[in-house]
Structures are given as structure tokens and as C-alpha cells.
Write a protein that binds this DNA or RNA. Structure first.
Length: 573
RNA sequence: CGGGGCGUAGCGCAGCCCGGUAGCGCACUCGCUUGGGGUGCGAGAGGUCGGCCGUUCAAAUCGGCUCGCCCCGACCA
């Protein structure tokens, strides 16, 4: 490809609208342009990266036995009403009506559509297992689209669905997809980690997320350095601490704590560690109903765990008006002692505490030397907090460590959630009807591209891993002599002959401009051709990521590049 | 949806308080120049100042409404 004839509009300055690195670099290198919030055009350079990721995904999906199909984006409301998601999905579902006022939505995911297909076409266990996938644009009217392709309202996703006759087969299928995902992300050249995850809106039994590791990631994961265990903090199980050893229970005491609304304030005032404090969070659980959750001061409540325990999906902190109904205390001074008519849940960590501190249920008052069950009763104990670094691993007991990641893939074991509701059944060998056991598996294609940039960049621009680089090599004629032009054209021709994806910067620009654009675009190899080099019969090859330079006679460059590219495609870097 | 911020040339911004001529840098066009890390000089083109309503002799500037965008929180590939 000749840069002079390519539509690769690079930008010299950072656009004001982008703060996140991948977003900024995608705009500046001319990969994408915004059309509206969370809606982007993929320009030629961006599309090349997208296509490369898709190709890897297709190859591995096919290898795992999945078959590609293409379901419609537009789907009728009836299907979604069958599973209840027409209502449950809420505002995130893009809805529209046709000219006859019939309700439709733009697919945010395709369980309904694919399950409908299955029930119409599949009758027998002989047709199982069946795994279908597609790569398609999805629509989710996100609460807050952000960070370019990282969270769009319209985005390209690979989604796959498996159907099996029993748990064992489904598990096997799930594992196959899991393995395929590992191969996919290995092949893209990204550092990633599969972690145990929550099942969220899609629902189901078990699930893993695939996290591309990057300091800028939105997700926090914990992992055990001494076992395979890794989990999203949302999900990570916290092992209950050993129960308290008997000790002296001191008498309950009221203390004045003016304006000590936060755990931090309180600890400063009373000169105690946050682990001695218990915070009382009031959640609204139903109409005018409140549940109190006790969490140690230095811990974070995990609302997902609390929701799961309570069987709710719309847990929110109680409004001040509601709080006023159960206690005279303003927020910050609420405590479990004397809190009547409120269900109290306590995190397991509280069980190991004696003589701790809680809110006094009146303004500017806390209680010290509080003990349970002496001073208040807990209805339910459980794991209600977020895991954090240093917590013991549920597998080996070693202290957990944390990493940041970007969720690029998610696999779910769905069970019969959709097949039962929609009557997607098959007949077994005995003629008995059973709902198919399903799994579903997603990969955010654009997000994977964005994550790759987050993980592979420097102050000058992108450093693409070879397998997903838009081009493998870029020729930079840095002077304008005829000799340089001829050498560049010659090499361009040779590389094309070798099927190397090469970009020739034949623009009438100064060397500096070409260097900067090439660095920003992030092509793995830069082939620098100038009069200085040619005078010594050499051409310089620069590795974008390491900056390492190799000088070669012009007639050896094409072979060198060919070998180097092949090798980096092999070793996936 | 709650909180914060921003809409002025393709991009980045100034001008707004204190109303009166729309400006700078980059990019773009033409000419010369330069030629291994964003050359230099000269000449040009490019604007409904997000939109609507109002105040005023006069609005980018003041007031109201509205639309869009970005950032922080509740969601997710």
C-alpha cells in the first residue's frame, strides 16, 4: 500500500475529546473517527486490525468445531418477551418499531434468536453437540459510552452459542471454548489472564472472563501466585477468617465524634485502625424496605455478592429519606446497635472482631467496645465484601495479588435458562424430551484492538504485536534523491512479491514527518532508506518496539524481513 | 440518571468578566526553499462563534431554553 494514495488521516495533535491512550492513538493514527457518542467509523487502517483479529478468531472457532452463521441484527420483540428480557434488559436495549408499529430491537446479544433457530431446526440428540458463532455488530445503549472502541454503543462482537445434551457434554464444550479463547488471545500476541467471573445480566451458572492485562484497565482482578486461581474482584471468594479467640469483652461505651462522617475521619479522631471500625451500609431492598450490611472499615462492600445473596438485581444505597425512617442518625453515624425492624447482614470478617466501633445512631456519636451477639443480633453472616490484595487465596492460602485488566472475552455456562423458557428441546435415545444445555461465548473485537494498544504503546505511539499489526513493515524513504526513490520502489516490489504487508511512505514529506507518523501507526518494522545508508550500500531496519537497528545491503532486506515477520508470527509477538 | 466540564476554521486553542473589526498555532492551496526525527520564507483560501428565543442601536460576549460532546459514579464484549 502506498501511503500517498491511502486514506490514513493522521493527526499531529491530540484531539481534545480523547483522554485514554488507545482512544487517542486510534484517532491520531487515523484508525477510527467518531460519528456520535460511542459510535465510530472504522477507517482503512483500523479495519485492517479488526479484520486480523477476526481472522484469528474465525480460525480458532472453526478449529474448536464451531460453525459460523449470521443472525439478523434486527429482531422481533416476541422472542425477547419469551425470555423476559424485553423488560429485564431495560434501557440498554435499542428498541424501534416498523411501519406497522411492531416492536423490534437491535441485537445486543443473540441468545433469543439463536435459541429460536435451534428449536425450529433441531430435534434429536444425534444433532448435538452444536456450536454456532457469528461476528457481527451489536447494539447496546450504554449508560455511558467511553474511551473510543473500549465501550461503544455499537461494537463488533464475536458471539458463539453451544447446545449440548447433558451437563458433562456441556462442560466439555465450555472447556473447548475456553481453550480456544486462550489460543485466540495468545495468538493476538497479548498478555492476558482468564479469571473467574460473575454472570451478570446474561445469567447462568459459571463463567470466566478473559482479561488483557494493562495498568489502564477498568477491571481489577486478584490472582494467586501459587496456584492457577484468578478472579475478578467482583467475584473472588473471600475465605472467612478463623473465628475469634475468646477475649475480654469490654463494656459498651458512647463516644462523641463530631463530624466524623467517614471511616477515615473517625480513625483520625479516635486514633484507631480502620480494621477496628465496622461500617453499617443501608441498602434499599424493595419498597421502603431497608437491609443493613456490616462491613469492616478497611474493606469494601461487594454489591454483587449482596445482590446474589438477597436474590435481587437492583440493589441501591437507601435514600436519606428512607434512612431517616429507621434511625435518627445522619449517614455516617448509623450503627447496628438498637437498629430495630431492619434485617442485618454481616460480612464474615466481623465475626473475628471484638470490642469494635460502630455508629451510634444519633448525630456525632459512635459506640466503642461493641460486640456481637452481646450488643446486637446478626440475621445472616456471609461473604459480602470485595476481595483485596493480601487476602488468602481460596486455593492455596497464599496472599492474593492484584492486577488491572480489560475484559475482552467472556464465556458463560448458561444451563437451561434460555432453552427451557423458549422450549428448545431435543429427544434423547429413549425418546424423552430435554431442554438443551447451553453456553455462550463473546469476544469484543474492537475492544481487543483497543486493549492491544493499551498494552503495547510508548510515548511516540502504538507498538503493534505482529499478528494484529495493520501492516508488517513500513518503508520510509527519508530523502528525496532518485537513488532513494528507486531503492524504495524496488524493495516495495520485492516485499509485495513475498506477500509481506508493506506500507510505502511515498509522500512528499520530510523524514521527520515520516518517522513520527510511522512511530504513531506502530508498524513493527520500519525500513529506513536514505542517501547516507545507500552510500555505504546499506538500508536500516528498525524494530518499532525495541528500537533495535539492523543495517543490511539492499538486496538482503526483503529476505530478512520475510524471515523476521514469519518468526514473530510464530512466537506471537 | 446524578455530579463536574466543554461547544469559536479540519485539529488544538485565545477572545467572553468589561457588548461595537473574529484572532493565533498546526493542517490545507500556490510559489520558492529545505531534504535522516514535525525545514524556512512569502502569498492565499477557509467561520451560520452548537441551535432557538430574548435584552440591546448593536450579541461570540448578557439572560433563558435546548441540543451535542468529554470526564467521575451505578452497567458490560
Amino acid at each position: 500500500m502506498r501511503l500517498s494514495q491511502s486514506f490514513i488521516p493522521t493527526m499531529r495533535q491530540d484531539p481534545g475529546e480523547a483522554e485514554v491512550i488507545s482512544h487517542r492513538l486510534m484517532l491520531r493514527s487515523g484508525m477510527i473517527r467518531k460519528v456520535a457518542a460511542g459510535i465510530y467509523s472504522y477507517l482503512p487502517l483500523g479495519l485492517r486490525v479488526i479484520r486480523k483479529i477476526e481472522t484469528i478468531v474465525r480460525e480458532e472457532m472453526n478449529r474448536a468445531g464451531a460453525q459460523e452463521l449470521l443472525l439478523p441484527i434486527l429482531s422481533p420483540a416476541e422472542l425477547w418477551k419469551e425470555t423476559g428480557r424485553w423488560d429485564f434488559y431495560g434501557k440498554e436495549l435499542v428498541r424501534l418499531q416498523d411501519r406497522h408499529d411492531r416492536d423490534f430491537c437491535l441485537g445486543p446479544t443473540h441468545e433469543e434468536v439463536v435459541t429460536d433457530l435451534f428449536r425450529r431446526e433441531v430435534r434429536s440428540y444425534r444433532q448435538l453437540p452444536l456450536t454456532l458463532y457469528q461476528i457481527q455488530t451489536k447494539f447496546r445503549d450504554e449508560i455511558r459510552p467511553r474511551f473510543g472502541l473500549m465501550r461503544g454503543r455499537e461494537f463488533i462482537m464475536k458471539d458463539a452459542y453451544s447446545f449440548d445434551q447433558d451437563e458433562a457434554a456441556a462442560q466439555h464444550n465450555y472447556q473447548q471454548m475456553y481453550d480456544a479463547y486462550c489460543r485466540i488471545f495468545s495468538r493476538t500476541g497479548l498478555k492476558f489472564r482468564p479469571v473467574e467471573a460473575d454472570t451478570g445480566l446474561i445469567g447462568g451458572i459459571s463463567s470466566h472472563e478473559f482479561m488483557v492485562l494493562a495498568n489502564t484497565g477498568e477491571e481489577l482482578i486478584v490472582f494467586d501466585p501459587d496456584s492457577q486461581y484468578a478472579a475478578n474482584v467482583e467475584r473472588a471468594e473471600v475465605v472467612p477468617p478463623p473465628s475469634k479467640k475468646g477475649g475480654e469483652l469490654k463494656p459498651l461505651k458512647k463516644v462523641s465524634t463530631p463530624n466524623a462522617k467517614s471511616v477515615e475521619d473517625l480513625c483520625g479522631l479516635l486514633k484507631v485502625d480502620a480494621s477496628r471500625v465496622v461500617k453499617t451500609l443501608l441498602y434499599q431492598t424493595g419498597d421502603n424496605e431497608i437491609t443493613a450490611v456490616l462491613i469492616r472499615g478497611d474493606h469494601q462492600a461487594n454489591e454483587i455478592k449482596i445482590q446474589r445473596f438477597l436474590g435481587l438485581h437492583d440493589l441501591t444505597l437507601a435514600s436519606p429519606e428512607l434512612v431517616a425512617k429507621v434511625t435518627a442518625a445522619p449517614v455516617g453515624f448509623v450503627g447496628p446497635v438498637g437498629l430495630s425492624n431492619v434485617r442485618i447482614l454481616a460480612d464474615n470478617a466481623i465475626g473475628a472482631l471484638t470490642n469494635f466501633i460502630v455508629g451510634g445512631n444519633e448525630p456525632d456519636v459512635h459506640l466503642t467496645n461493641v460486640n456481637s451477639p452481646r450488643d446486637f443480633a446478626v440475621q445472616d453472616w456471609g461473604d459480602f465484601r470485595q476481595a483485596q490484595a493480601g487476602d488468602p487465596s481460596p486455593k492455596s492460602g497464599s496472599p492474593l495479588q492484584t492486577l488491572r485488566g480489560i475484559e475482552v472475552g467472556h464465556v458463560f455456562m448458561l444451563g437451561t435458562k434460555y432453552s427451557e423458557k423458549m422450549g428448545a428441546t431435543y429427544l434423547d435415545a429413549d425418546g424423552q424430551s430435554h431442554p438443551a444445555i447451553m453456553g455462550c461465548y463473546g469476544i469484543g473485537i474492537g475492544r481487543t484492538a483497543a486493549a492491544a494498544i493499551e498494552q503495547n504503546h510508548d510515548e511516540k505511539g502504538i507498538c503493534w504485536p505482529m499478528p494484529i499489526a495493520p501492516f508488517q513493515a513500513q518503508i520510509l524513504p527519508v530523502t528525496t534523491s532518485e537513488a532513494v526513490r528507486l531503492a524504495s520502489e524496488q524493495l516495495y516490489h520485492e516485499l509485495n512479491q513475498q506477500n509481506i504487508e508493506v506500507l510505502l511512505d511515498d509522500r512528499n514529506e520530510r523524514g521527520g514527518v515520516k518517522f513520527n507518523d510511522a512511530d504513531m501507526i506502530g508498524t513493527p518494522y520500519h525500513i529506513i532508506i536514505g542517501d547516507k545508508g545507500l552510500a555505504g550500500n546499506t538500508i536500516e531496519i528498525k524494530d518499532r518496539k525495541t528500537g533495535e537497528k539492523v543495517l543490511l545491503p539492499p538486496n538482503q532486506v526483503a529476505d530478512w524481513i520475510k524471515d523476521a515477520v514469519a518468526q514473530r508470527l510464530q512466537t506471537q509477538s
